[in-house]
């Protein structure tokens, strides 16, 4: 499956990565190489093989629906770039 620049630009937008024209053409080359290597997978017959998401086939444990965490907003906001009155500040979204 050949990779085109539109694919890279679409992925960059979905991943919220700014990408210059120079970068875009370089990433087309790098990612094409990687996907060519990945395409070896198509040689294996995997009909009827169930996908493996977790190496131990574990199931999710359940716990009681109870509050176990305390509110540590001040602590966690200490590493934020910009906060005010306990809120994270971002550029205006709604004009």
């Amino acid at each position: 499956m050949a990779l085109e620049e539109t694919h890279v630009r679409r992925a960059a937008h979905l991943a919220r990565l700014a990408i210059s024209d120079d970068q875009a053409s370089r990433f087309v080359d790098d990612l094409s190489q990687i996907l060519d290597m990945v395409d070896q997978l198509q040689r294996i017959d995997t009909d009827g093989v169930a996908p493996l998401a977790h190496p131990l086939d574990a199931t999710q444990r359940l716990r009681a629906d109870e509050v176990t965490e305390t509110n540590q907003r001040d602590t966690f906001q200490r590493c934020a770039p910009v906060v005010e009155d306990g809120l994270y500040l971002v550029p205006r979204v709604v004009e």
Binding site: M1, L41, T46, L52
Partner: peptide, 17 residues
């Protein structure tokens, strides 16, 4: 692209295990 890549890779992962 999901089936051709991600699902396929997870199937191969089972064969490797």
């Amino acid at each position: 692209f999901f089936d051709a890549y991600y699902k396929k890779a997870q199937q191969v992962r089972r064969l490797i295990r």
